[in-house]
Design a protein around this nucleic acid. Sequence first.
DNA 1: TGTTAGCACTCCTGTGAGTTGAGTGCTAAC
DNA 2: GTTAGCACTCAACTCACAGGAGTGCTAACA
Lengths: 342, 342
Amino acid sequence: MELDERKKKILKAVIRNYLETGEPVGSRTISKYTDLNLSSATIRNEMADLEEMGYILQPHTSAGRIPSDQGYRFYVDTMMEEKDREMVELKEMLLERQDKMETLLKQVAKVVAQNTQYAAMISAPSTHRNKVKFIQLSRVNPEQILAVIVVEGNVIKNNIIPVTEEISDETMLKLNILLNTHLNGRSIEEINLGMIAALKAQAGVHGNIVGEVIDAVGDAIKADEDLEIYTSGTNNIFRYPELADNGKASELVGTFEEKQQLGSLIQESLEDEAGTGIQVYIGDEAPIKSMKDCSVVTATYELGEGMKGTIGIVGPKRMDYDKVIGTLRTIQSKLDELYKKD
Amino acid sequence: MELDERKKKILKAVIRNYLETGEPVGSRTISKYTDLNLSSATIRNEMADLEEMGYILQPHTSAGRIPSDQGYRFYVDTMMEEKDREMVELKEMLLERQDKMETLLKQVAKVVAQNTQYAAMISAPSTHRNKVKFIQLSRVNPEQILAVIVVEGNVIKNNIIPVTEEISDETMLKLNILLNTHLNGRSIEEINLGMIAALKAQAGVHGNIVGEVIDAVGDAIKADEDLEIYTSGTNNIFRYPELADNGKASELVGTFEEKQQLGSLIQESLEDEAGTGIQVYIGDEAPIKSMKDCSVVTATYELGEGMKGTIGIVGPKRMDYDKVIGTLRTIQSKLDELYKKD
DNA sequence: TGTTAGCACTCCTGTGAGTTGAGTGCTAAC
DNA sequence: GTTAGCACTCAACTCACAGGAGTGCTAACA
């Protein structure tokens, strides 16, 4: 059977109505609130067809229809009319410049959650294939040396190294030069065991310091990889009865707290980039099973230098996709501006 | 009226029973499950007295009794029998040494949540009245200077300062000496406007760099104050019907996500230290209003050098206080050991 | 005087019947 | 192809009623 123009209109009307009310929608409603000028009986026939084709379904015989996952998918793919969202709070927020990435991200998540009334998450931007940019050893006091490692993307790692023996200024200088000449500009793949051994040999009795520094380098690059994720508005899930029942709510809250679980979502969204960087997962499409009754919309954002992160919104399947996607687009461009201004 | 031995026994029995079942407990139950050998009628008389005195209450006329906040309070203050908790996971966890404070705290929170089946939170230890320990400026590349500030307690703050003019090695050295001689060992109160002005004047054209460094010093000390808090097991609240209903659950989840709100609790628990450092807040006693139907137990822990943090457990009023307090005590001592081993 | 048995009373809880109403599918007429 | 009409379905609500747990009170007992 074919999905002609009229069927599409009806499907759209069903979905729109259901997104608003959350109640199954009947033929009479459609007949009244569309410009099709068709009687409810005709609508009923069409709806029976749509059901057969899998776009909508009936919770029970004598109820109206609700969209199926396939229906939502069709809607998202072909019928959406993105709303342009103006977010006052966001503008204000970005006016007072955030120095700390963490604060910025938390704020963005908060604004998104407040604007959409869904749960929001955001991952810190991560660069891949980091290279060492700069290393600095300094003596804090006779027993402690501070190692600062800066890797590309200005991720900074500090490490305090305890030392037993006295270390002269000269030695410190030597170690600094040694480390910088050999490690700067190197990626983690380039720093191999042979190199490490050679460096340690050159450092002589202070080989252990070199060892610690190299460990810290590894950490600095890795730390960047185990992505930090911030969430906001988790409690918005209680707004939607279909998610708020005990079992589901508990699972979802758990997932949002155990942020690692969200990692797979972030990952997938970063990899599978198609054009605009906005992805919609409906029900089982998301890689997290506790979200099987949810829809998830993710957007990748870029903060320059290939620093990519992901923003995600989790809500019920009857999510206001138009609004959500509009919001995410706005955020994308604001973040872009923000970087350019820097 | 006086609270004689028998009344106490009955009160204890009512509370114990209610903690287990969560159902109002009737006179017959008490008569059967205590060694008092009294008939239900007698128990009823006593229970009427206990109700009049405010220790227990009736949800409705024909129901059993449940403890009032006052009843819980009395129980916690005078009748508890702490259980010694052995936590296998904790031991294992602490065996594999955690290098990162953050990971350690998250793990502790997780273990506590899993062991108690309540929601857990933990604040990072913070030292008060920090002093600057060490400052180091270094040139990452011609346009960027990295400032590293170490304050007491080894809190480290990095700041990248963009510069337009070329800065010579000599100037860098001078700036380093200038900053270190004047700022090291100073607390935030000691660094006043006059001092800042003087430093800027001495730095001449590079006054802006000094300004940025001083801002960073402020941040480093402040960063330590706006406490980091980690949570775990938020979804445990769904185990307890009295907390799981939509409105309450939503509020609680919100509170746990907005970690600042938990700050007041942490603060209070740190200040009001009476001996063991364990505090019990029943209902309204806690400074957070979304927890009015909860009980909160907090414990301060010390990681040496006056680094104090707080662990908290949030659950229903019918919390297994004995177990929770036992657990917290165990954690306290384990963390203590951990520090000593260092 | 303290304890207990007995009894009427309260009130939550569960159940089953009956009603309502929204919505459907089908048929026949337009 | 569209529509009016009608019988049918089924969740949701209401209501009455029974059951049961628990109480308070009274009177009797040790």
